[in-house]
């Protein structure tokens, strides 16, 4: 674990929390992602005690790793699913000033927000950036629809792309979760602003929503510092088939 921001995913269901944490964690292996769910009696619901305990454990792990609590920009981003999960997290933060200082609650769709936040945290982003990434997940659907609607054939951009190439997807499943995470993490490291078929290539959610499978031709464009190299890097990744061909 090297990321300074960890995620805690709070659900009514222990299985949903565990599954979401597994999914987000797989896409961002450097990030500590913990799920907590279920009521005090083990059924559906939320447990204040379990949430408090999980937050404390996660903060302790971050502190041991020299990240998080002590480090600038570190901490925990929390996502909840429905009503009482969110309310109980808010109550936990109101009850304990230490938790309130180091943990912040996102207002985001549970799965999409967790995945986006995990991938952002993986790149070493600070807590505010991870929170923003989670919160932006709600706008993903509208963004993709706008980018893919026929009227928006020319994606709005600052100008002519400085690098542009077309590449054909080679692996059967294409830009599914793991490859999308690889590409978006790489793009986040690069200085240039990269789009693939008009969507933001640093957004794992938008890449996955392209639904690009084998044989699909994708237009990779970039502007800004190192645009040409960025396009070459992304094209190379896609052409490699992500080790799946």
């Amino acid at each position: 674990m090297t990321a300074r921001v960890a995620l805690v995913l709070v659900s009514h269901s222990a299985e949903l929390a565990r599954g979401a944490a597994e999914l987000a964690g797989q896409m961002a292996p450097d990030v500590l992602v913990r799920g907590v769910g279920g009521g005090p009696d083990g059924g559906l619901g939320t447990s204040l005690d379990a949430i408090q305990q999980t937050l404390e454990e996660v903060l302790a792990v971050l502190a041991d790793a020299g990240a998080g609590a002590g480090a600038a920009g570190g901490g925990v981003v929390v996502l909840g699913d429905l009503g009482s999960s969110v309310l109980t997290v808010e109550a936990a933060l109101e009850l304990d000033d230490t938790l309130a200082e180091h943990a912040v609650l996102a207002r985001a769709p549970f799965v999409e927000g967790a995945v986006a936040a995990a991938v952002t945290a993986h790149g070493g982003a600070d807590r505010d950036a991870v929170l923003a990434s989670a919160n932006a997940a709600i706008g993903m659907f509208a963004t993709i629809e706008a980018a893919q609607s026929p009227g928006a054939a020319e994606p709005p951009s600052a100008g002519e792309p400085e690098g542009a190439r077309t590449v054909t997807v080679r692996n059967p499943l294409g830009l599914h979760a793991r490859p999308a995470a690889l590409v978006s993490r790489k793009v986040a490291e690069l200085g240039a602003s990269v789009t693939i078929d008009g969507v933001d290539a640093s957004s794992v959610l938008q890449l996955m929503a392209l639904g690009a499978t084998r044989g699909r031709e994708l237009r990779v464009e970039a502007t800004g510092d190192g645009a040409t190299e960025a396009v070459a890097t992304v094209v190379e990744m896609i052409e490699s088939g992500f080790g799946e061909v």
Binding site: G39, P40, D41, G43, G45, T46, S47, L48, D49, G83, S84, L87, T88, E90, A91
Partner: peptide, 9 residues
């Protein structure tokens, strides 16, 4: 700690 639904918080 014990209610488990929205009425707890």
């Amino acid at each position: 700690s014990t209610v488990g639904g929205a009425s707890g918080p």
